[in-house]
Design a protein around this nucleic acid. Structure first.
Length: 468
DNA sequence: GGCCATGATTTGAT
DNA sequence: ATCAAATCATGGCC
């Protein structure tokens, strides 16, 4: 009631002097009583206000009739404008304190995340972004992008749903806004609604819808998170390496038995080699850290039970020696333009195999002269020797590999001299290498960070860049 | 289902 | 950061 009286006061007094009323008041007012001064006007307005104030006390029919009368009243526009102004002022003072427009940090975070996840933003490149993000989230496993079709498919699905829903929300928002605006415009004929108020209402609608959008974004993020965690779980699930990959890794391991610590470059090389068949649909990619894992496991398991790995060691030593002999022979036959690299499939690996051959010969020679590859002064070396002799292909090994070794004698030196590999911590050919009494690898007091000490500069890892 | 092989992870040392 | 060692967890064979 107090408000009403204040309103009346302001209407009859202050506001009428305001600019908003001026235009209306400035119009000719034929209905006004004879007295043309302000007093008469005040009386007129006062009576209108009285009608307005009492309209609620009357019956519906009466009220309707009076309303119609008021609507047609020539003072209506002026009054309406004043009421709008008052409403605007009071409304702003009430709401102004509440509506602290904070730049929505959370929404921005969500947007950024969706962008990073590849859900929002451009279609292509999303996969890479996801891969990077996922790799980073995997806790340091950053060496490989996630190549997983399932993951991508699911992500695309999420992306589609997200965009569809977003579009729906936007459409609904626009429709609703239009609807409300129309309603308000309609109502503005009968009650004081200023354009500002409409604008504010629109903002409210938008903010409501944006909160819905935020929910959508949030749940999309959650979906991506779940997908990612599932995928990472799947990654944790062990999948055996392909036979070729294991062979490649074993070849390297046994041919570098004296120091099975591949350098970073070597690991990369091995990872590349092991993944080479993926393009043909064989196996799966192997990352550098997987190579590291493999070597870590291999070293520890080999060391724990050398006897068990003896057969394998002999096998690979023989294999590498044969490969090497072929490679060396090829090099011998045609120094520079070697036509093929038999048995390797990796053309640029000639030098690699040469040195590997040298190394594997070390293993074989060691085994021949002192018991077995990597007898390493370990207590069970005798057993190893026996196992070495009991290997099925022992005679084969003895004959063929021995022949290879002999035939390669000079070529090895050739390679060694070529690569400048002549002296080092141990004799290049006949040293017994591998594990020492402590059970640690002889040459591995601190594994080299770049290349193994028993590898020449022309080893597997120095030739990768130049050959491309 | 048990068992072994094996890739991955964790922990602690350097 | 990288390693050894221990451990976990799964794949695959029987």
């Amino acid at each position: 009631m107090e408000d009403q009286s204040r309103m009346i006061q302001s209407l009859s007094g202050v506001s009428l002097t305001g600019h908003s009323v001026q235009g209306a008041v400035g119009l000719p007012l034929p209905h006004i009583h004879d007295c043309t001064d302000g007093d008469g006007r005040n009386q007129d307005i006062g009576s209108i206000l009285h009608q307005i104030m009492t309209i609620t006390d009357q019956s519906l029919d009466e009220a309707q009739a009076k309303k119609h009368g008021l609507n047609c009243h020539r003072m209506k526009p002026a009054l309406f404008s004043v009421l709008c102004e008052i409403k605007e002022k009071t409304g702003l003072s009430i709401r102004g304190a509440q509506e602290i427009e904070s730049p929505d940090a959370q929404l921005m975070r969500l947007d950024n995340m969706l962008l990073a996840e590849g859900v929002a933003g451009p279609e292509k490149g999303g996969g890479a972004a996801v891969a990077a993000a996922t790799a980073a989230a995997a806790g340091g496993v950053t060496d490989n992008s996630i190549e997983h079709s399932d993951y991508r498919t699911k992500l695309t699905q999420i992306r589609q749903i997200y965009h569809t829903e977003l579009e729906k929300y936007e459409q609904a928002c626009n429709e609703f806004t239009t609807h409300v605006m129309n309603l308000l415009r309609e109502q503005s004929r009968t009650r004081p609604i200023s354009p500002k108020e409409i604008e504010r209402m629109v903002n409210i609608i938008h903010s409501k819808f944006s909160s819905i959008q935020m929910q959508l974004k949030q749940s999309t993020c959650e979906a991506v998170m779940i997908l990612r965690s599932r995928f990472l779980d799947a990654r944790r699930k062990r999948r055996n390496f392909s036979k070729q990959a294991t062979e490649i890794l074993n070849e390297y391991f046994y041919s570098h038995l004296s120091n099975p610590y591949p350098s970073e470059e070597a690991k990369e090389e091995l990872a590349k080699k092991c993944s080479i068949n993926v393009s043909q649909g064989v196996g799966s990619t192997i990352t550098v850290s997987q190579v590291s894992n493999w070597f870590g496991n291999k070293r520890i398991r080999y060391k724990k039970n050398i006897g068990k790995f003896q057969e394998e060691a002999n096998l690979y030593a023989a294999k590498t020696a044969v490969t090497a002999s072929q490679a060396v022979a090829a090099v011998h036959n045609s120094q520079d333009d070697s036509p093929t690299t038999p048995n390797s499939g990796f053309q640029m690996k000639d030098e690699d195999f040469q040195l590997d051959a040298a190394d594997s010969k070390n293993s074989l020679l060691t085994s021949m002269f002192s018991g077995s590859p990597g007898s390493f002064n370990l207590p069970n070396s005798g057993d190893m020797f026996k196992s070495m002799q009991s290997v099925n292909g022992a005679s084969y090994l003895g004959a063929q590999v021995g022949a290879n070794v002999q035939s390669q004698g000079d070529s090895t030196h050739h390679v060694i001299s070529q690569t400048g590999f002549s002296d080092g911590p141990r004799h290049p050919l006949y040293s017994s290498h591998g594990l020492n009494v402590n059970g640690s690898w002889q040459d591995a007091s601190r594994p080299p960070s770049v290349t193994s000490p028993n590898e020449g500069p022309a080893s597997a890892h120095s030739n990768t860049d130049t050959s491309n």
